[in-house]
Amino acid sequence: MHNILEVKNVVKQYGDYTALNSVSLNVPQGSIYGLLGPNGAGKTSLIRIINQITMPDAGQILLDGEALNPSHIKQIGYLPEERGLYKSMKVGEQCLYLAQLKGLSKDEALTQLKYWFDKLEIKGWWDKKIQELSKGMAQKIQFVVTVLHQPKLLIFDEPFSGFDPVNANLIKDEILELKKKGATIIFSTHRMESVEELCDDIALIHKSNKLIEGKLDDIKRQYRTNSFEVGILTANVEGLMYDLTQKFTVGQTQFKSLNDELKLEIQIGNATPNDLLQILTARGQVTHFVEKIPSAGDIFIKTVKEN
């Protein structure tokens, strides 16, 4: 698959501190790519280098096969984590200014702005000053400014922070629509549920190094432990436990349910789920049977703790 962005052995140092230690990434075209990592891992440093805000000390970055150069600024849309707008400037004027800085002509900018202001139902805000808007409203404007010049690569750093659930959902739908139209999206966040929901690919950066990269599903497969979460109603708990421990590793677990059943986590190793089910059905009524697939959050925590 074609990679729209290739980061090759990028190094960035601030004085004695190494922010990025030879990091390489490949972002496939048309994907939503989750850039994950704890605070201070080096995500923002990398994003700033991709946006040509700072220069790497070593390494190379290719956008669509070309070495990164100033003409690429127009092809990237960036929504920083630390974001804001001129408080005393009118919304419309401000959007026009920022669009023109990205290289749009005034007419192009007006056409695009009309489209987005209609779409997000914010037409009435044109002559308002930012200081008259709520934080969530200002965030919508920032989103519009980011996508206005129809960039092929979009970088969102914590895009949902500051949004209420309704608006967060609205922005999420817009992001998915942009993807459908062919844009590639790099998505840096701590919110694992949105990673789970949106991302096709992920990379995990920790302490200036990349630890994991790949398709989210592949990574999950790597991290699966063949464990099952089981709920069972049985009169003979001891008998059941005896049967299970003969063959599998068994532990207690917790999950939400309406029954007052026995809740177990069972690792089946090389056996099949059917082997487990046979034992269970022989001893009682199965109310719950789910494979424990590691979530992006589990993988994140596990990897960070191990390193």
Binding site: L85, Y86, T146
Partner: peptide
């Protein structure tokens, strides 16, 4: 205002 990063991108 935190607009700086938007502009210098």
């Amino acid at each position: 205002n935190r607009i700086i990063e938007i502009i210098i991108s």
